[in-house]
Design a protein around this nucleic acid. Structure first.
Length: 272
DNA sequence: CAAACTCCCTGTTAGC
DNA sequence: TGCTAACAGGGAGTTT
């Protein structure tokens, strides 16, 4: 499922593909993914506008819009959720059967929001609405200003266990099930540990692991899911989805447990 | 404040 | 082989 690295690599390619293109139409085969829930409104608002910029915050893709050369107080926020992806293709190529929302551009290309499970969201927001939405998210883990001291202090104020806390987008942005498990394994810390039980050094190691794993996954274009259905990256998880296999560090069998209703893979020997 | 559910969905897989 | 039921999971919302 798309997390920070997958969203980041999507944004990097979208920047190349859709910036400065003019929207001439919008199609939707599953309009319930649109917020506010109105394809007519979306079409009316977007037609004639130009894509000014594409950026990322947390797991959100932000498509900023312009009217000719004036940036508009209007943006599209795309959330891929479980199974979404954005694909740019020529309109002459027939769209994937799971295409749900399509932006049509003046040059004959299209940006297609493909999402088999329909969990994704395609939201039109004002500048204030966007700011309000993005302010709800916790710190960006890759921002250099986010240091071990900040992370340690934040952990100290929470009694929850680490796994649900890392998945909590208000606590830290962009981490999902894959990179939470990978980071905890890398740092040698158990997902059930209470946040406030970590020493400063453990918090430092965990943040270091998070940053290293996320950077590495971005460089590799996201996770390799084998079948390539969701995303075709080359990051190979060492614990996520690897239950029953041998731990790459100690050789013991990796175990699966359920933490906060989420599948979690852990090495009970390496992670304490 | 935190944990546990529920809902939204469908492709995949385990079980019979 | 072919069917059905369970499962997966991000996020928003509700209940315990």
């Amino acid at each position: 499922m798309p997390e920070l690295p997958e969203v980041e690599s999507t944004v990097l390619s979208l920047k190349q593909e859709i910036v400065s293109k003019t929207i001439i139409g919008v199609k939707a085969t599953w309009p319930r993914m649109i917020e506010p829930y109105s394809i007519k409104n979306l079409r009316k608002q977007l037609t004639g506008l130009r894509v000014d910029a594409v950026s990322r915050r947390a797991k959100c893709i932000i498509i900023s819009l312009a009217d000719n050369d004036k940036p508009l107080p209007l943006a599209l926020l795309v959330h891929l959720r479980m199974s979404g992806r954005l694909q740019v293709a020529d309109s002459s190529r027939s769209p994937h059967p799971h295409s749900r929302v399509i932006l049509c551009f003046a040059d004959g290309s299209e940006c297609r929001f493909i999402d088999p499970r329909k969990f994704g969201r395609f939201t039109l927001l004002s500048q204030e609405g966007l700011e309000q939405k993005l302010n709800q998210y916790g710190p960006e883990p890759l921002q250099s200003s986010f240091r071990a001291k900040n992370f340690y202090q934040a952990l100290q104020s929470k009694k929850r266990s680490l796994k649900p806390l890392l998945l909590d987008q208000q606590f830290i942005a962009g981490i999902g099930n894959i990179y939470a498990d990978e980071s905890l394994w890398e740092a040698g810390i158990h997902p059930l540990r209470a946040a406030d039980s970590l020493s400063f050094d453990e918090a430092k190691q965990l943040l270091k692991a998070i940053k290293r794993i996320l950077r590495s996954a971005i460089r590799l274009n996201g996770t390799d899911f084998g079948d390539g259905v969701v995303h075709n990256g080359r990051f190979k998880p060492r614990v996520y989805g690897q239950n029953g296999k041998q731990c790459k560090r100690c050789g013991k069998e990796l175990e699966r447990l359920v933490v906060a209703q989420r599948g979690t893979v852990v090495c009970n020997t390496c992670q304490r």
